[in-house]
Structures are given as structure tokens and as C-alpha cells.
Design a protein around this nucleic acid. Structure first.
Lengths: 339, 339
DNA sequence: TTGTAGGCGTTATCAC
DNA sequence: GTGATAACGCCTACAA
């Protein structure tokens, strides 16, 4: 591989001048500049990025931590993040934590070892106290995940309110026995959702059912299991708020196979407005997050932190969401027939 | 940030010895080693990765080029690739090309500038002659994409045969007027599929229909458009091979809205066995690729190339696929009623 | 067993 | 305008 030195020799000048040309700096005569450009072409010279990194102490790379990329929500998120980051000239490293605390910490090492200039945490399973020390090594922005502190910037929607709205919707549709499912790991988000769910129920003096089977529902398969479990153990349940469209889809699918009527026997709410939720029969009521906007803002905030020297204030950006009412909760006919 | 020098000073030894400790090399007394470890802890020392890269001329990073991560096939692919690469200690950089030739070339620069040790191309829209020169900068492995050469290693299934099988299946189900859709960019894969499709038709003396509207079908929305188009312009079409489950799902969805019966009026085949294809009503006949196996093999091959000094032979790995027959093509009742 | 010194390729500082 | 020279932080002959 040709180095800057080779180019300098061939062009009959010094490394310094070549460097000036590479970086489009002033104070180089047209004549020299052309000679150098020629030499670079001839040698197929390309600046070595490791050397640049060492010299400049920046990597132009960020790490994005997320549970798993095949969850469509995170797929969309990283798609948008990659696009946005690339506009600023940053590479994106994918870090799948699978909700494992250790993996999360391992990937944060990238920040310490200066392999990345900053980190987006869309996976956040450790205690904040474990994460905080990494802030000394570089900026971190929480995306989707959040908590109650002002020691870090965050971009998210109000999951508590979203779950509240969805639950109220179920109640308005006449549901009296409503269940709640969430993914394996207990995160701040799932706590927030549960809290909103509880509030809606208690405001209407409705009972709260709990079953450990409901706290590990992550994907379509889990959704199917949930429905089987409901049918055999809790057949009175007539509404369910799932934290995910995949789980909701699994429930709808299993219901179709097992003669359970949605929404008549069971009204279902998903989360994230994946394509899936629209295509299922019946289509699934869900909550839409402005993923692209959130991704853009996350990168904007992170880039600002990475590029400014002095540590600036941390900010919280709360985005609006939308409850999309679809057929899986449309019990208007059910309610009527009761009267 | 503490450097190796700082540690050395604090521990009262030299950089060399510290480096030995870091890299677990012999010839260090227990005593010194402990002192040095202590010093590292005290200073919170972490080796600087940029320096290491420069010194070792390796980045422990690979780039994965793919069209878009939200296409579930590529989502699964990169999930598996990331996991496998991480076992070998490699980071993964996501590079979405959106099927743009220029983006593809831009990302290949990462290899030239030594930002990555190797590249997986799961997006391949340029001519091979454009790509080939990059091989001088480091190893490249084609995954999913392939072509007729032995200048590069490839991991893929036989798309020609897969399309042939699927088309034969449609014919066996009694379809007489069969259409073919493919994604925007003309790739080697789409040519292969088309060739298999053609062969099946001509073996059965069936006509081949062509319509430019069918060559840009990529996602669910496009599938919906395709069905609308079929209904108004080619209502006689009774079978369709789509290159994608999303397109197939779009067709099924639009059919349900528009009183078109699947499979009675139109039998539909997708590709990739996404969750979606199973969950749709009717469930969609599709072709399953062994994504995880392909990802594993791709990384295995790439790692070997990256780690061995002398350039070795290029190999082609062709994986088996499976045609999953589901309801979207089950016309047994149709066929019977004709008799 | 330990330390010295040079270099990986680049850029910033300073002197000419 | 241009060019030596000294870092950036690490590893590794080689010498002791």
C-alpha cells in the first residue's frame, strides 16, 4: 500500500504538502497540487484510516446497542440511524445485546477503547450505575429507552401514557378483564407501560390479573403460547395489551386456528405499528412511534456531543405517538348485542 | 486517558513489560505483573484501539453491504452475521446501499482505507469489473448474491432452480397464465430466477407474460399495486411468482380487500419464508433459505481469508432451499371442481 | 527477565 | 508557500 511518503517522493515534495492537498488546505500552488494529485492517482493512494484515527483521536464511528435487529422496530431504527449517521460521515457498528447485561457492558467497551466516538443505547438492561462510568469515555444517548435522571440525553415517547391510552381504549370497547404482557427483561419502559396500564384499570375499578407466563412474551411464538394459556387458564380474559405487534400477531394467528374470536372473545392491542399489524386478519390495533424522527434526533444530539469539546447539558426529547384503532379491538357489534 | 507509558511509570517498569502483560506474554515475573495490573486498575487504563490498529495493520472489523436492513431477509442475515463475527472477535459495520451503485462503491472504500479487514457483499448491483479492483485491498465474499466466475468466494442457493421448482408447483396446481415479479434492480439473482421461471413455462408450452409494472415490486405496497394492475389489465393471470414474501403479502392483502380469491382466482408464491408468509390468510407458499447457515459459512470463509497471508482459492458454496407449500397455492379444490 | 529504540501513517507546529 | 520534525499509543526486534 502506498503511503503519504511514497506520494511525496513521486511528486517531489514533502509529506506536509501532500497532507495539505489531501485535506484541501490552502497554501499549495496549483502546480504542486496537480503533481501531487497525479502521483496519488498513479499510486492508487488512499489515506490510511488507522493512522488518521490515531493522529486525530477520532474514529468517525458510533456503536448502536439494541436487543436484536430482527425485531422490526429496531430494524427500522437502525436503518434510519445508519442513514442519518452516514450523512454526518459516521460509520455505524451493530451491537446486538439480546437483552444480556454482560453483552451490553462488553459493547460499551468500544467506547473505552476508543473504537467509537459515541454510543446509542437502544438496549438498556443494566442499572444506570453500571452504565454511568462509561460517560467518562465518550457521549451516550438513550434512544427509545429512558429513565428518570438528567445525567444523559434521551429520545423517546411516553410509554406510560401510551399504555394508558391503549388500555382506556380497551375499556371503552367493553373489555372488563384485561391482561398485560411484556418482554423478558424488566426495563424502565416495561415498568412505565405497566404503570399506565394499572392506572387505567384502577380508574375504572377493574381487576388486575397477573400471571408469570405473560412477562416473557417477545415474539409470534410467544403470542401463540399466550393465547393457549389464556384459553385453558384464563378464559374470562376479554382484552389484552401486548407490548409488541409480533406477540399480538401470534395471538391473532393462534385464535384463528383455535376458534377463538378476535375481537369478540378477546380484543388485542399491539405496539409499534409493524407492517404485520396491518396485514393480519383482523388487523391489529397498535401504537405507532415516529421511529425516523427519533433516529434523526438521536444522531443529531449524539453528533453534537461528539463534536463539541465541552460537555453540554443533557436533554430529554419526548415524541408524540399515535394509537391506531383497528379491527382487533373493534367490539362495537359486541357491545351493541349486549344491550 | 491513560497510556501505556503512564502505566509503566506508575508501576516502575517499561512500556515493553506493560505491553507484555496486556498481551499475556511470557517472561514477566509475577511480582511485576501484579504491580502493573494494579497500576492499570488505578489509572483505568484501556489499550487504545487506534494505536493498535495502526501498529498491527488490522482492524478486527468487517463491513456488510446490503440493500436495506428492514427487508427481513437481510435483517436475519445481518443478525446471524453479527453474532458469528462477534465470536471471532470482529465488529460489524452496516452498509445500506439501497441498491445504488454509487453507495456500493463508496462503502467499498472502507476496504481501501483500511477501515475494515474484509467485506461481505449481500448487495451487488455494479458490474463485476467495477468491484474486482477492490480485491487488491482485502478479501470480499459474496453472500446471497452470486455470478458466474471463480474470482471470488460465494455463498448462496440456486435461485434458478428454486424459481423453476416454484413455477412447476404453480403449473401442477393448474395455473395456465403465470406472471413473474422482481425487484427494481436487475441483478444476477433476478436473472437466474427469471431463467428458471422461463424454463418451467416453456417445458409446459405455457405463454410468458411480461409487463414493466412487474419489474419493480419490492415491498407490500408494490404488491398491492401489482394486484390492482392484474385485476384491471391482466385479469386472466391465475398464478404469480413474486421474488419476495412482502410483495406476495401485499397481493394477498389487496385481494382480500378487493374480492379477489387467493388461490382460486390467483395462486401466489413468495420468497424467503418470512414470518409474514405464514401468518397471512391464506398462508403464503414460499421458498426458505438457510440464512443462518449461509451467514455462518460466509463469516467462516471471510475470516479465513482475512487471517491467512497468502491468497487462497475461491470457493462457491451452494446451499439447499425448501419450497414450502401453503394455502396461497393450494388449488386442489379448484382443480377438482373443473373436472 | 527486562529495557531501549524505532516505526506503523498521519497531521500540527514551527521555522524557513 | 513549503518542508523538517515531533507527536498520536502501541508493539517488537534487539540488546543487555
Amino acid at each position: 500500500m502506498a503511503t503519504i511518503e511514497d506520494v511525496a517522493k513521486l511528486a517531489g515534495s514533502s509529506r506536509t504538502t501532500v497532507s495539505r492537498v489531501i485535506n484541501d488546505q490552502p497554501y499549495v500552488t496549483k502546480d504542486k497540487k496537480e503533481k501531487i494529485m497525479d502521483a496519488m492517482r498513479q499510486l492508487g493512494y488512499v489515506p490510511n484510516s488507522s493512522a488518521r484515527r490515531l493522529r486525530s483521536q477520532r474514529t468517525e464511528t458510533i456503536a448502536v446497542l439494541l436487543p436484536r435487529i430482527t425485531n422490526p422496530f429496531f430494524g427500522h431504527l437502525i436503518e434510519a440511524i445508519e442513514e442519518e449517521a452516514s450523512k454526518y460521515g459516521y460509520q455505524v457498528i451493530v451491537c446486538q445485546t439480546h437483552d444480556k447485561k454482560q453483552k451490553e457492558l462488553d459493547y460499551l467497551q468500544l467506547l473505552k477503547t476508543k473504537q467509537v466516538d459515541g454510543v446509542v443505547m437502544a438496549s438498556f438492561t443494566n442499572d444506570w450505575m453500571e452504565i454511568k462510568p462509561f460517560l467518562d469515555s465518550g457521549p451516550i444517548v438513550l434512544c427509545n429507552e429512558y429513565m428518570d435522571t438528567d445525567q444523559v440525553s434521551m429520545v423517546h415517547i411516553d410509554h406510560r401514557q401510551a399504555a394508558y391510552d391503549a388500555t382506556i381504549h380497551l375499556i371503552e370497547q367493553g373489555c372488563q378483564h384485561i391482561a398485560f404482557t411484556s418482554g423478558g427483561q424488566e426495563t424502565h419502559i416495561s415498568r412505565q407501560r405497566k404503570s399506565g396500564f394499572h392506572q387505567a384499570l384502577s380508574e375504572h375499578n377493574l381487576p388486575f390479573y397477573s400471571d408469570s407466563k405473560w412477562t416473557e412474551a417477545l415474539d409470534v411464538k410467544d403470542g401463540q403460547k399466550v393465547l393457549e394459556h389464556l384459553k385453558s387458564v384464563h378464559p374470562y380474559i376479554d382484552g389484552i395489551f401486548t407490548g409488541s405487534d409480533e406477540v399480538a400477531a401470534g395471538i391473532v394467528y393462534a385464535a384463528a386456528q383455535g376458534n377463538w374470536r378476535i375481537p369478540e372473545d378477546l380484543a388485542v392491542v399491539g405496539f409499534d405499528n409493524q407492517m404485520l399489524s396491518l396485514l393480519m386478519v383482523p388487523s391489529i390495533t397498535t401504537i405507532e412511534q415516529p421511529v425516523e424522527d427519533m433516529a434523526r434526533k438521536t444522531i443529531e444530539v449524539l453528533v453534537e456531543k461528539m463534536q463539541s469539546k465541552q460537555p453540554q447539558r443533557h436533554t430529554r426529547f419526548v415524541y408524540p405517538y399515535e394509537l391506531l384503532k383497528r379491527n382487533s379491538t373493534d367490539r362495537s357489534s359486541v357491545t351493541q348485542s349486549v344491550h
